[in-house]
Design a binder for these strands. Structure first.
Lengths: 254, 254
DNA sequence: GAGTGGTCTAGACCACTAG
DNA sequence: TAGTGGTCTAGACCACTCC
């Protein structure tokens, strides 16, 4: 621990700002295993005293590592090395259910429900689901967790016609839809990256501003009707999606 | 401008930290158009004086907006409202070339070459490309730009057998490969989100720590041989990928 | 040379957590 | 109650840009 925070070696010309030098030292200690997951770092004031830097500078170094998910801070408690998150790979070419997908991997899955009720639809929901006037929407918002670790926030919306009793969904939405003959057979997804906002960051247990994978999905019935409109936000450090691409047809313009 | 930075209204209980209140004010001014792209904000010291806050607090508010790409700071010059980036959608199910894809959209494309030469391969490249001992690798690293705006960093690697003269690639790699009968017909991609590091952020013109879409692609010839191993980093605020999903085959477990 | 953002300091108070 | 992180201040120097 002394090795990480000893005052020597700082300020060598060309080594960059002090907060970056300290940040590098801590990151290396984590990478080389000298600091293990769950280990606590000294209080910020102590780190400042040990290194001879000001607390503001120490904070700046620590903040970046918190932002990239390598450290976790708990007010009143301390600063700790974060548990590494096992990266999960999912094939993006198949239309699978989160619950079923994880079950196949032998992972326990649970959800923390944020919302599971009928609502007056938002304009975006009316558009996406093609809702008629006066039709309600079933919202299923939850934090998806695997082995207790939050992986994603999922906000699904369905026409109340198709799912009048949202409370009937306990685990897999798709399995409930299947029993009603409403499982989508086709879907279109839009994928993008975005910084995770303060509220969602809290739900996912990551730092505000961390990178996340944003996925918007429209699921279709064989008839062409939209069944589900789902917006999900996956932790960037926990999820990989894989896709297999085919050759573009000759002259396929758009 | 006075409206944004007038000292009144701060510190109302329950409104949260001062830096968040200021951050919100500036973000709203941008959202409502009271601040337009290219507009300059007052110097940090002036913002501090106008609001009655310290410069450190002003900086913290500004930093977050720089991080989310809404503001741009240039040392020695000033703080400016960022130009909004038009989001580009790309179908992920077709194997297309960046150059050709953008041309179809009527966008001008150019590249800034970072590297275009033969090298001794890295272990990762040997693995991915299945290189024999002593084989060199052609590296094509560039910043992809559309209408002058950096969109992505692309780092392609090919066996020197297949592309002995990397300098021959001027615009589209795929079109060069096509003339040699080496255009991939199939590819596998891995997509994930990650924070953009300092070096790449500089190349893409975004703030360090902004969200990016990381894509790793292996392109295959009909024979099954790997032609290209490409690692790309797309700006999260500029790119959307769309995918069409099919129903998972019954009992398709792994 | 004047002005800008980038870094750094010492010290303070608050809100929360733990024993 | 003591210790922790969260916020905030006033003031300073440096590196860079622009004139």
């Amino acid at each position: 621990m002394d090795r990480i925070f000893h005052p020597g070696g700082f300020d060598a010309t060309g080594a960059g700002p002090l907060y970056l030098q300290l940040q590098r030292r801590i990151a290396e200690a984590i990478a080389t295993g000298r600091l293990s997951p769950g280990d606590s770092l000294p209080p910020e004031r102590d780190m400042a005293a040990l290194t001879g830097l000001s607390r503001v500078t120490v904070r700046k170094a620590v903040q970046t590592l918190v932002g990239s998910g390598q450290l976790v801070q708990r007010r009143g408690s301390g600063t700790f090395v974060a548990a590494p998150v096992e990266r999960i790979e999912q094939a993006l070419s198949l239309l699978t259910s989160f619950t079923e997908d994880m079950a196949r991997r032998g992972k326990s899955v649970d959800s923390v429900w944020l919302n599971r009720a009928l609502h007056v639809p938002s304009p975006a929901e009316v558009m996406a689901l093609g809702l008629g006037a006066g039709t309600q929407v079933a919202r299923l918002d939850r934090v998806r967790r695997s082995d207790g670790v939050p992986l994603a926030i999922e906000r699904a919306a369905l026409s109340a016609d198709l799912l009048p009793t949202p409370e009937s969904v306990v685990a897999s939405l798709y399995s409930v839809l299947e029993t009603r003959g409403l499982r989508p057979v086709r879907a279109v997804q839009r994928i993008s990256a975005a910084s995770i906002g303060a509220r969602d960051a809290g739900l996912l247990g990551v730092a505000e501003g961390a990178a996340g994978l944003q996925i918007e999905r429209l699921g279709y019935l064989p008839s062409g009707r939209v069944v589900e409109f789902t917006r999900s936000l996956y932790r960037g450090d926990a999820y990989d999606f894989t896709v297999e691409l085919k050759l573009a047809p000759e002259g396929a313009g758009d």
